[in-house]
Nucleic acid binder design. Sequence first.
DNA 1: ATATTTCATGCAGTGCGATGAATATAGTGT
DNA 2: ACACTATATTCATCGCACTGCATGAAATAT
Lengths: 108, 108
Amino acid sequence: MESISYKEAAAVFQLLSHPVRLHILDELRRGEACVCHLQTILQRPQAYVSQHLRVLRAAAVVEGQRNGLNIYYHIVDDRVLRLLAELLGPAQDARSVPICPCPSCAGD
Amino acid sequence: MESISYKEAAAVFQLLSHPVRLHILDELRRGEACVCHLQTILQRPQAYVSQHLRVLRAAAVVEGQRNGLNIYYHIVDDRVLRLLAELLGPAQDARSVPICPCPSCAGD
DNA sequence: ATATTTCATGCAGTGCGATGAATATAGTGT
DNA sequence: ACACTATATTCATCGCACTGCATGAAATAT
């Protein structure tokens, strides 16, 4: 692996230096989730969640794929997964209960 | 082992989210160093290095012990060591050449 | 085409971190 | 006591990230 500069490494840590982004990423570790999931779990306004998702998207840490009206996000950066595991511990089990009115929660 | 909150975890990442602090910590991974070492290596004003050391000290990531005029710093937080290793790779070998006019560099 | 739902974007206010300059403190030697 | 060196602290400025609010864009349904 090519060595990473301090500036680049700092940028990665910077992404993880916000509690809301950490919460989002920790949820995404459990499996992909649409914005309405995250909105419900975080108890934050949709626009607010979306802003943080944009930061993570711009840094190529997460990716979203559209499915009808909903966009499902997932983590695509392995370094970030390892850093999360190092500090937060292993990921929780996948969700099983519906948490929002999206099709996959409705069992539709 | 106790689980860490997102806020606390974010604070740890925050400490690592600055290139100068990362450089300082990466140097300290190689062994303890006095401020004049760091000043020489980073090519930054003394007060600037000292400011960042204060941040790391306040967060209990580093500790300094006085030896005459000089204060030698070292890392005391294992989580930080693991996070650095995860993103920067293993620590470099210990320094061998003198880099500043402090007693230990002068071989005094 | 209109309406509804889901998500994204633009903009503005505010606070905090980063950096520099000047000054203070602690230790050493005379 | 005085001077000198190493490090810390205080203060002030500046830019950027955070956050809220309002609006825009994409997909779906009637």
